[in-house]
Write a protein that binds this DNA or RNA. Structure first.
Lengths: 147, 147
DNA sequence: GACAATCCCGATAATTTTAGTAGGAATTGG
DNA sequence: CCAATTCCTACTAAAATTATCGGGATTGTC
């Protein structure tokens, strides 16, 4: 049940863009450095997010990437859907026709329940929620530093 | 976020054993036929479950497999733990030391929350719950059959 | 004791997915 | 024009997954 690096890195990239939302367009180079991820690979992932309309970009000198809307308006479910597709643990949860036993399979029901629980969390959390959590942590750490 | 066939097939096998709990030792051949899964491969998986104490076996003629305890006493979390290991979407959720940014990473917190939600469902569901759900469905289908 | 049925074990092969890398084209500001 | 940057497609190496295979060990039955 592991998430791939697409979802893992992609969410971190989006959080990075959210933290720098006020600064306008952000260089991929800088995101990659802060997140310690290959710039080329992140570049590939960000294009998925751009195609789906969550991110916009400017080419050429002074180019970069930015969120298309405020972090308060971006739910994690949107991000993960783009990068990972459905969070269903099994394909048959999304598509009954894939398995002819699906309609009478109690095992499937459990995976469906789990999918719904995951979706519920991702749906009810926005990038802004993560931003606040992260900045809160940092302040706490800075405080602790002086004790 | 896909489950591997280990967890998928393994849970179905355990449900099959639960449905046939009263009949004593069950042939792998029969489980494989009912579940439409390679007998050899299922044989491999059942050994994991045996080693971990959820299943017992008899060799030789009239051999087979059976649950070591009642379906009411087997939580899905036990089964999945054996077959899939942790359900954590990322390793850093289980082991802070794997990533030096973990303590100040808001993204990680979300995956942790999701892990806990999944665990909660698997922990609070027993094989018996699935048995009842499945037999209920079958009765419903049989009823519908005559309409 | 021979035999058939069954579980047991380790090796390995085939397939798919993942996680990138590479090369270069297109765009833009200065 | 040039440097910086995004954009696009193809390729590849490694890892994980999903089995398959051959043969050994055990047991009940005749």
């Amino acid at each position: 049940m592991r998430l791939s690096t697409k979802g893992r890195y992609g969410l971190r990239m989006m959080l990075d863009l959210a933290l720098n939302y006020e600064r306008g367009y952000i260089l991929m180079k800088d995101i990659a450095r802060r997140q310690e991820i290959s710039e080329r690979y992140l570049g590939q992932l960000v294009r998925l997010l751009k195609t789906s309309g969550l991110v916009k970009s400017l080419r050429g000198a002074h180019g970069g990437y930015a969120l298309t809307k405020s972090p308060t308006q971006i739910r994690l479910s949107e991000i993960i859907r783009v990068l990972e597709g459905s969070v269903a643990p099994l394909e048959c949860v999304d598509d009954l026709d894939l398995c002819n036993r699906a309609s009478r399979c109690a095992a499937r029901d459990i995976w469906k329940k789990i999918k719904e629980a995951m979706e519920n969390i991702l749906e009810s959390t926005t990038l802004q929620d993560l931003v606040e959590q992260q900045t809160g942590k940092q302040q706490f750490q800075e405080t602790m530093y002086y004790i």
